[in-house]
Amino acid sequence: MTTLRPYTTDQKMADLLLSNPRLLTLFERMGLRLGFGERSVEEVCAEQGVSAHLLVAMSNIVDERNSAPSIDRLVRDDLRPIVDFLRLSHHNYTEHYFPTLHDHIHTMAAALSARQREIINSFYDVYETEVLKHFHYEEQTVFPYIESLISGTRGEGFTIGDFAETHSDIDEKLADLLNIIIKYLPDADEAMASHAVLRDIYRIEEELAAHTLIENRLLVPLAARIEKGAER
């Protein structure tokens, strides 16, 4: 596997998006407007009020160019766009990805026997419930805590270390579902439906992986640094 050069703030902004369409979602969520011309990442970000170092760090994670970017250049104010990004990402899962996957799973399972249909559907439902529970925890507990760090009104109790510890692994079930569909689903007439499910899972896996990395490699260490009072 070849490793691509990580993105930097001094390269042309347009080249990021031209080199990988995966960054489009990130750009959308960061609120970047197109029409970059020949300007650099740094210049465009300054114009549009986006943190260039954060955009580059996130781009490197999403595009798998550097999954452990340095947070040295990031500051307290970068926590806000990270949390916004994660919230939008949650919204995308609950409003688009999961309903689509849910429908595709049910279409696929319709061709199976009753007991097989039941177990596949319930496996998916349990998975979705777990993910939603995790999202809910982040939205009710973690993000408000981060927001209190941003505003400097942090109370006693929760610390970012607690989040790191409870960060459950929800990827395994998705990988299991992939295995089951590819290897063990009985020959079904609904091959197209199975393919649709696989495509959904690949997309979710990819985004969830980036989502998890952004939490673990950017949000958590940055919040931990700010907790320690390294900066005001």
Binding site: R115, Q116, E118, I119, I120, F123, V126, Y127, E172, K173, A175, D176, L177, N179, I180, K183, Y184, L185, P186
Partner: peptide, 22 residues
């Protein structure tokens, strides 16, 4: 062998392959 790690994934496999009753 199966590439399945979670207990619920193993349960799905078992039912798919008629190893257990629903």
């Amino acid at each position: 062998k199966l590439g399945i790690r979670t207990i619920s994934g193993l349960t799905v496999y078992a039912i798919m392959n008629n190893l257990i009753e629903v």
